[in-house]
């Protein structure tokens, strides 16, 4: 078992409470874009949440607010009752597009956060484990431009995981992977989640992926951007979890989510018609 070797130093917390969140952007022409309005979200520590919704409905915006990279125009977000004021390593974020540092090789990219916080020595082993875990062993010395899109995304994932955050914010982390690697990575993410009790908030466009992975699926709709419905999908962390892709329940949940997306978005993007 790989994860047994991984260091567990984090207190098992990671509750997110978001109250009446609103986010507005001022466009260059002076008009306002309302990206989010009146959003109320409660995420319990250790939960796995998937966020699903049409393009442009504010999913990335919400993740950035939790990460502390931008501030909400209205309302407040708390992590374990602490107001989020700025970014911090206890809230890891995997960006929608790869943001590996081109001047560092893969190993140094993944070890970056640990080195910055001067805890690299204690966690050296974790770096190697995560490199192996995401299937990049042998590419430690390669530079980001030498990797494929999927490999770069896996490296980004490893880089966020190695810091062992309380909550991991994932913005379509598996979007660039082929179906097979994608399913493998889903299982790895599930396994890491079970091992480490990290709270997970993951944006995805893949309804199956959302049902397969999460405890609850938040279905978002645009204009006004809000969470239309919260769907309980899984519970517990038994061995059975995540192994029922063709069960009746699975298909029922899937058609339910698709229905919500279909009825609420006026012209849902084609990716939801499966």
């Amino acid at each position: 078992m790989v994860a047994a070797k991984l260091t567990k130093q984090r207190e098992g917390m990671g509750n997110i409470t978001a109250r009446d969140i609103g986010k507005e952007f001022i466009r260059p022409d002076g008009k306002r874009t309302i990206a989010l309005s009146n959003l109320n979200v409660d995420i319990k520590a250790g939960e796995f949440i998937c966020l699903i919704g049409p393009s442009g409905c504010g999913k990335s915006t919400f993740l950035r607010l939790i990460a502390g990279l931008s501030k909400p125009t209205f309302g407040e977000i708390r992590l374990d009752n602490q107001l989020i004021k700025g970014p911090g390593y206890e809230r890891g974020l995997v960006f929608q597009d790869s943001t590996l540092f081109p001047w560092l090789n893969i190993y140094d990219n993944i070890a970056y956060g640990l080195k910055i916080r001067r805890v690299f020595k204690q966690h050296k082993q974790d770096v190697n484990e995560f490199i192996r875990l995401v299937g990049l062993a042998g590419f430690e010395k390669a530079y980001p431009h030498q990797l494929s899109g999927g490999m770069a995304q896996r490296a980004s994932l490893a880089r966020a995981l190695v810091s062992n955050p309380k909550i991991l914010l994932l913005d379509e982390p598996l979007g660039a992977l082929d179906a097979f690697t994608r399913m493998n990575m889903q299982d790895e993410i599930l396994r890491i989640w079970k091992e480490r009790d990290t709270t997970m908030l993951m944006v995805t466009h893949d309804v199956d992926e959302a049902i397969y992975l999460s405890d609850r699926v938040f279905v978002m709709t645009p204009r006004p951007a809000k969470i239309e419905e919260i769907i309980e999908v899984n519970s517990g962390r038994g061995e059975n979890r995540g192994r029922q892709r063709d069960s009746g329940d699975f298909l029922r949940l899937r058609s339910k989510i698709l229905q919500i997306l279909d009825f609420t978005g006026k012209t849902p993007p084609p990716e939801y018609y499966l």
């Binding site: 502390g68 390593y89 960006f95």
Partner: peptide, 14 residues
């Protein structure tokens, strides 16, 4: 420098 590099770096505790 791309803004997102600073952002990732900050979320890792820099």
């Amino acid at each position: 420098v791309k803004k997102s590099y600073f952002e990732v770096s900050s979320t890792m505790g820099a």
